[in-house]
Simulated scan of single mutants.
Amino acid sequence: MICFICCRIKMRENKNDGEIKMTQKSSASDEHIKLADSIKSVHANLRQRLRDGEQFSQVWSEHLLDDQVLESYSNAMNALANQHWTKLEIESEDTSRIIWTKKKILEYYHNGGINNQLIRDNNRLKRHQEKNEQVTKVQQGKEETKQENIIEIDKSLENKTINEQLKLLDVGSCYNPFSKFKEFDVTALDIAPVYENQVYKADFLNLNITDKSEFTEREVISLESCSFDIVVFCFLLEYLPTNRPRYECCARAKQLLKENGILVILTPDSCHQQRNNSIIRGWKEALLQIGFQRVYYEKKQHFHGLVFRKLGAFQHRLALEEANLPGIAKEESNSATSDDDIADDIVTVEEVAAKFVIPQDFNSCEPNLLKKRSEAPKLEEKNGTETELGFDQLPDL
């Protein structure tokens, strides 16, 4: 009888413990949903102002001066990252975009990835020369030029050691997640930084790119061109409410990267892999036209991970020819995207920038995300299917 009573008591205790844990989990879930919704509401407001006919330059300038909104956004993102995402990373590394990014960077720089890309360049050059073999035979001196253009595999790049820090620029960082990795020398920028995390304040779209990097205690004055091994855009492009500034960010990344340096783009998406394939394909084309070639691409549960390499001018031209893509008109672009004699066919910057779309661009209206979620109206894409907001799964990343 005593044993029976003890068992009943134990069962009640287990039940109560379970109820407490469920309550705690529900409370945490509610909190991170609220944080995510406050972040998404900022994005939605910027997009809505453009739909209402305001110019991006005006909307963005006013946004940068709205200290209350920026501080609220920064606090929400910092809390979301440190209170929720870090726990999920421990439970499952597969959900972590930070761990995914680190692995891909080290695979590229430490495990032969860059060497494979240089071999790829050599093979592309050989195909180009074989294609034009008959022409080169009848032109005096072409054989010598052919040999000069052969790219030597740079073994020093392949042999970068773990003790050599890679220079990483984290744009839109807020809380500087890559600073914990000893492999990286990190410069973190944000328009609403958490200063205790060693993040500098800077508007990347208007940042000076010169021959020297200069900083104050809290802000970036300028960054040196061609000085970084890695530039990271983690959920950055979705913040921007239209495609032209997304293009400008990528063009600026090219200016800041060393040749063969890599641009890492992470974009949120909890749909199945094929759902937004056409959007990702458009991004790949536009990035190649700017001067980046894809190295890695992976669709994870809640995000797309893309890694692109900055091509040299000659390899950029060959890559465009093989992809049958036109280059960007010099008179329409800046030095970040123009190479001498880049291609016979050209397009305008606007035509290339138009490829940098996100699913939210197709929404004619967006709900107030701070309303009760059950009250928010469903949104429809052009194809008539219900669309998720880009950061709907933000707490799960």
Rank of each mutant, 00 (worst) to 15 (best):
C6L: 15
C7E: 14
I9R: 12
N14V: 13
N14F: 14
K15I: 13
N16K: 13
I20A: 13
S26M: 10
E31S: 09
I33D: 11
A36S: 15
D37S: 10
R51G: 02
E54H: 06
E54W: 03
V59W: 05
L64W: 01
L64M: 11
L65V: 00
D66H: 13
D67Y: 10
D67C: 07
Q68Y: 11
S74N: 06
A79R: 15
K87D: 11
L88E: 10
I90Y: 07
E91R: 15
E93V: 08
T95K: 15
I98Q: 06
T101I: 07
K104Y: 06
I114A: 09
K126A: 13
K126Q: 13
E130W: 06
N132I: 04
N132L: 09
N132P: 00
E133Y: 09
Q134W: 08
V138L: 10
E148L: 15
I150T: 07
I150E: 12
K155E: 13
L157H: 09
N163M: 06
V171Q: 04
K182T: 02
V194W: 01
N197W: 08
Q198F: 11
V199E: 02
L207G: 00
F215E: 05
F215W: 00
R218E: 12
V220S: 05
L223E: 01
E224P: 02
D229F: 05
V232G: 00
V232Q: 04
C234H: 11
C234N: 15
E238W: 07
L240H: 03
N243T: 13
C250T: 02
A253R: 00
A253C: 05
Q255H: 09
E259A: 07
I262Y: 02
V264P: 04
T267N: 06
S270L: 10
C271H: 11
Q293L: 08
Y296C: 12
G305R: 06
G305K: 03
R309I: 09
A319Y: 05
A319S: 15
E321P: 09
A323M: 01
N324R: 10
N334Y: 01
T337P: 00
D340S: 08
D340Q: 03
A343F: 01
I346A: 12
D361W: 00
F362V: 10
N363C: 11
L369F: 15
S374M: 10
S374G: 07
E375Y: 12
G384N: 01
G390D: 02
L394N: 03
P395G: 01
P395D: 01
P395L: 03
